[in-house]
């Protein structure tokens, strides 16, 4: 099963909609709740990252019998220093993002913590693509 959702940068009201939809589908597929939680937390953090940092993006979810692959491709500023961005507590979030309860510098580390595989490709001035893989068993 392949799903696709568009995400607009700056639209905090809609942030989490795609994660919510994918959660509902995984529940219908009777996936283990602890696995669903790992998927949606990684996905929600990544979705919020697009809203917080990028201009727009697309979330693609590929659900197979053994697991899920999430690809989050955004048009945005890119990440100049990925190693720094992966450091817990490091954040470049704006005041507006922090007022929404994010920007603690825990996003990427938390995605990594919940994923079985995690890859970041980024080009400064162009955008970032995250690929997150989580096995169902």
């Amino acid at each position: 099963m392949k799903l696709e959702y568009k995400v607009e940068g700056g639209d905090f009201t809609a942030a989490g909609f795609a994660s919510s939809q994918i959660k509902k589908i995984l529940k219908q597929l009777n996936i283990d709740p602890s696995v669903i939680k790992r998927v949606v937390i990684a996905l929600y953090e990544a979705e919020v990252n697009i809203v917080a940092h990028a201009y727009r993006g697309v979330i693609k979810a590929h659900i197979e019998s053994g697991g899920i692959t999430l690809t989050l491709e955004d048009e945005g500023p890119g990440i100049p220093d990925v190693e720094m961005a992966m450091t817990p507590g490091f954040s470049t979030a704006t005041k507006a993002v922090r007022e929404m309860g994010f920007g603690a510098g825990m996003g990427l580390p938390n995605i990594s913590e919940n994923a079985d595989s995690f890859n970041i490709e980024t080009i400064v001035g162009k955008g970032t693509t995250l690929t997150i893989g989580i096995k169902f068993k």
Binding site: F12, T13, A15, G16, S19, S20, K23, P33, I36, K37, V40, I41, Y44, V48, M100, G101, F102
Partner: peptide, 15 residues
């Protein structure tokens, strides 16, 4: 003390 939709989304994602 966070009164916005993301606090509810966070609970939703956290089960």
């Amino acid at each position: 003390g966070l009164a916005n939709i993301q606090s509810i989304r966070t609970l939703e994602m956290s089960d």
